[in-house]
């Protein structure tokens, strides 16, 4: 503009700033690229290949022999458990995710209010994130023997309130399928609460970003609390729904108390059937990805609409 032309051409042998920034960028993410290629892509391709093979292992190494889709066929048509487990886990995942979303949203709304001991409650709610990742979950569930003993002791010691409630509801003829879902949710209240730590915090962050004045204005205009929830709170935090849904689904599928995970690792470690284990792992992985894709698509459609 001022008449002084800054030449965009670099001197010979020197790179433009852009190009240099690009190199720096690659330098910074280099660890990730190396790790990604060596420790993720290569094993991923390996396992895809093995899932198409009959894998023999001896002292010399692994000898995969290509035999097409036999392993997949085995998983879907021959193995007695796999299909059943898959549908069960996916069904459990859906109810679980919905329950976690609702529970964590409700808790986040409560924690966003002022009351005594809020810091303590928040700390307690976040505690499971620290504790429930590896050992504890495994230990609680691996002890099936212990569980049966506990059940025996408990049933002798006290009358089960929940059982009798279930009985009463059954007799009064409420639809059994809906009942089953509700019942399983009640049984899993603990695991739901235990796995909603991060989600609560994420929602809480979203809620804290909403200015109080919005609610005050709505109040003055005569909005009920219920209405202002759907008109103010929900649209603002709905982008966070996607984050939470994805997080919940991943978290659910990675848990060690998952039947399929269990089956895959026994097939691999105990039966040494690497091909079949890889095939099951791949089916499982693709289903997880598909579920995440579908659910985030549905929700993102909903999010866009709620902003209109």
């Amino acid at each position: 503009m001022t008449g002084i032309e800054i030449s965009a051409k670099p001197r010979r042998g020197r790179l433009t700033i852009r190009a240099r920034r690009e190199i720096y960028g690659y330098l910074f993410i280099a660890p990730f690229i190396i790790g990604f290629l060596v420790f993720l892509i290569q094993p991923l391709i390996d396992s895809l290949w093995m899932s198409l093979c009959d894998v023999q292992i001896d002292a010399q190494g692994i000898h995969p022999l290509y035999w097409g889709l036999t392993n997949y066929n085995k998983a879907f048509n021959i193995d007695p458990d796999f299909r059943r487990m898959m549908t069960e886990e996916v069904g459990r995942m859906v109810t679980h995710t919905l329950a976690i979303l609702v529970v964590s949203l409700v808790i986040a709304i409560i924690l966003n209010q002022e009351f005594k001991g809020r810091a303590f409650v928040r700390a307690v709610f976040f505690l499971p994130v620290i504790l429930s990742s590896g050992v504890l979950v495994g230990l609680e569930n691996n002890n099936s023997l212990m569980n049966s003993i506990q059940n025996m002791v408990q049933s002798n010691a006290s009358i089960h309130l929940s059982d009798s409630m279930v009985e009463i509801l059954r007799l009064s003829g409420i639809g059994t399928e809906a009942m089953d879902i509700v019942e399983s949710l009640i049984n899993e209240v603990q695991s739901i609460v235990m796995s909603s730590g991060i989600q609560i915090i994420v929602f809480l962050t979203g809620l804290q970003a909403i200015p109080r004045s919005l609610y005050e204005a709505a109040d003055v205009e005569g909005c009920t609390k219920w209405e202002s929830f759907w008109k103010i709170t929900f649209p603002v935090i709905s982008p966070l729904l996607i984050v939470n849904i994805i997080y919940t689904i991943i978290d659910f599928f990675m848990k060690t108390d998952n039947q399929i995970m269990d089956k895959i690792s026994t097939t691999m470690v105990v039966k040494m059937d690497y091909g079949f284990a890889s095939a099951m792992a791949w089916v499982y992985f693709l289903i997880v990805i598909a579920l995440i894709g579908v659910s985030s698509l549905i929700v993102s459609k909903g999010v866009v609409r709620s902003y209109d």
Binding site: L40, M50, I250, F253, M254, A277, S278, A281, W282, F285
Partner: peptide
């Protein structure tokens, strides 16, 4: 790719990591 490492269950690749 970063998103991918979040969503690949480590169990999927554990077989081949083990052999790897």
């Amino acid at each position: 790719a970063v998103v991918l490492i979040i969503i690949v269950p480590p169990q999927t690749i554990s077989t081949s990591l083990y052999l790897h």
